[in-house]
């Protein structure tokens, strides 16, 4: 853990004793509590590229949803930058999701029957940017992710890789300091996965965007600079990623 003190940047994410459990009703109507995350402590600094690994059901998505302000922890604290997330109102959480976090999903989660351009522009609309300005900025992002010619296509007219690029553009459009990606390459073939991972690596290197990414594939995790392993809701490994390939490829 002492490795992290090497970073001169300030902490972006800080969780302390974070627990998450779900209450379920069993067949007899009795409430049973199912704890998923156990006393997690984790600090992620600005500019880091972190991969979270672990078996299916180990609580990776649950953690990501809490980090993305889509879900709330049962106990423990979560600081995002200067903000104590637990103390925020619904509106403030919406504002954080809009401005500070870009979420990328395994299943892309683009809005159906809406062009790629409008999909990318929507977070700007929620930020109060005018329609024409938001479209202009969205187009600029699509240009950078190489999708300029697909701006007017709807999600079902795009390949998986293209859809994920649109989703990444959407995550980036409000220039958030943090990108959270839950198995972003899970639905993509190897070649496309590589392209997407290069895009993440590039964003991390060139723009200093902090990236936290969930995967269960080693060669995907290899793009990250830091590796965290979850097992049954506990962090069992947190280390620098020595097997990194990123620097070679970017250089």
């Amino acid at each position: 853990m002492s490795l992290m003190t090497n970073y001169s940047a300030s902490p972006l994410i800080r969780i302390e004793n974070l627990c998450k459990s779900y209450s379920l009703q069993d067949a007899n109507g009795k409430t049973i509590t199912n704890q998923i995350l156990f006393n997690l402590n984790l600090t992620i600094y600005q500019g880091e590229f972190v991969a979270i690994m672990g078996h299916s059901g180990s609580g990776k998505s649950t953690l990501m949803n809490i980090l993305g302000c889509l879900d709330t922890p049962t106990s423990g604290s979560y600081w995002l930058g200067e903000k104590n997330v637990a103390a925020l109102s619904n509106d403030e959480l919406a504002h954080i999701r809009n401005q500070s976090i870009g979420f990328v999903f395994q299943g892309f989660n683009l809005l159906k029957r809406m062009t790629a351009l409008d999909n990318v522009a929507t977070p700007l609309l929620y930020a109060g940017v005018s329609r024409s300005n938001s479209r202009r900025q969205a187009l600029e992002l699509l240009r950078r992710t190489g999708l300029e010619n697909f701006a007017m296509h709807q999600p079902n007219q795009l390949s998986g890789g293209q859809q994920q690029r649109v989703a990444i553009s959407r995550a980036l459009v409000n220039r958030p300091p943090l990108i959270l990606a839950d198995e972003p390459t899970g639905n993509l073939d190897t070649q496309t996965s590589r392209e997407i991972m290069l895009l993440f690596a590039q964003l991390n290197c060139e723009q200093g965007i902090t990236i936290v990414l969930v995967t269960h594939e080693n060669d995907i995790a290899a793009y990250a600079k830091r590796l965290i392993r979850l097992k049954d809701g506990h962090i069992i490994v947190d280390e620098n990623n020595t097997a990194g390939v990123v620097s070679d490829e970017i250089a």
Binding site: N90, A94, H95, R97, N98, N109, L111, T122, Y126, N174
Partner: peptide, 13 residues
């Protein structure tokens, strides 16, 4: 799901 996506990208209530 659409509502969820919209919330995830910053729509408030």
């Amino acid at each position: 799901r659409e509502i969820g996506i919209r919330m995830a990208i910053g729509a408030n209530q």
